[in-house]
């Protein structure tokens, strides 16, 4: 026992002092390759994935984002929708929830290919030496609601389609305006999403809207870190069911100096992470659980990521110093 403990402690120290950004970079690349090209290796993780492993990337996808089947299921004829056949919606949701619970919003910060892509676009901007944009607090407060609106529409419009209120050309409504639908197939050489569908007026509007959102996505994510995540209805859905999640972001307010280092590195500009010293479960609706805040917290134990209650990545002073000094040496 006494011999084992230092070994365990050494492992913990090694994890806590890891060069976090590099680790995350490689993790993201691996996940990106897996979910954008995994299909070529016959990997199929089902269609209930809690992140944008886009189903429109027919060739390479290693699984499908849950929002696609969800919208299809909700878009069923009402007679079917309100019958026993809709048990599959429930089981589908439970499968999705089971996936989600494992990493919580960590899916966003570590796995989501669209998120990774935005990080790469940010990296490109950084290399060009262009500063990133911030929202003012007022803008933030307004914009943060959009994802919930999108989530509501994502559920209501398919219901309307099933009920015959809207055209089938609107289905699946969110996918049609989601930049992932257009961008991710690009990576397997499929440019077919970049078209305007002239087959009906609705189709014209929806495809034009889709392409507009994608264009804004490129511009937006170039100047704003994780531009799209702010509006992502998947993120909203995550937040609504995040209570039982296994991976958690915890804060010990008594150790916090409110220095704002975590806020400074936060891609999502979440102020609570720095200013809230009362909440222990500090993950907010905008959080992508990238854990950069933990990596940039100089107060030992103030922030930590726990898995089933076991701390797996804890902020430490030595870790902070190592990481930040590394950052200093890079540009010299």
């Amino acid at each position: 026992m006494t011999a084992a403990k230092p070994a365990m402690q050494r492992l913990r120290d090694a994890v806590n002092e890891v060069d976090f950004n590099r680790f995350r970079f490689w993790f993201q690349i691996t996940a990106f390759i897996l979910f954008v090209y995994g299909g070529y290796l016959a990997i199929d993780l089902g269609s209930k994935l809690p992140f944008f492993s886009c189903g429109y990337n027919r060739e390479g996808r290693a699984g499908v984002c849950y929002l696609l089947p969800l919208q299809h299921q909700l878009g069923r004829n009402w007679a079917v929708l309100f019958s026993m056949a809709s048990l599959t919606i429930l089981t589908g949701f439970l499968t999705f929830a089971a996936w989600f619970i494992v990493l919580n919003k960590g899916w966003c910060g570590f796995v989501c290919p669209l998120g990774t892509l935005q990080d790469w676009i940010s990296a490109l901007r950084r290399r060009l030496g262009i500063r990133y944009a911030n929202y003012t607090q007022g803008q933030f407060a307004q914009l943060t609601k959009i994802k919930f609106v999108l989530l509501a529409l994502l559920i209501l419009i398919p219901l309307g389609i099933g009920g015959g209120l809207f055209s089938h050309d609107m289905s699946p409504p969110f996918c049609l305006i989601c930049p992932a639908r257009m961008v991710l197939p690009l990576f397997t050489g499929d440019l077919s999403q970049f078209t305007i569908d002239f087959s009906s007026k609705t189709a014209v509007v929806m495809t034009a809207l889709g392409i507009s959102v994608t264009a804004l996505f490129f511009v937006g994510s170039f100047v704003k870190k994780r531009f799209f995540c702010f509006f992502c209805p998947m993120s909203a859905l995550h937040y609504l069911i995040s209570k039982p999640a296994l991976l958690k972001l915890k804060k010990d307010g008594s150790k916090c100096t409110r220095c704002g280092d975590c806020y400074a590195v936060c891609d999502m500009e979440i102020k609570e992470i720095a200013d809230d010293v009362k909440t222990t479960n500090i993950m907010t609706d905008d959080c992508t659980m990238c854990l950069k805040c933990v990596a940039s917290c100089p107060e030992t134990g103030a922030l930590k990521a726990t898995f089933v209650g076991i701390p797996i990545f804890v902020s430490t002073e030595t870790g902070f110093i190592k990481r930040m000094n590394k950052g200093c040496q890079h540009g010299k």
Partner: peptide
């Protein structure tokens, strides 16, 4: 019924 020219143009 799909047009790349328009899609890419608008984009």
């Amino acid at each position: 019924y799909r047009s790349y020219a328009w899609g890419l143009g608008i984009g």
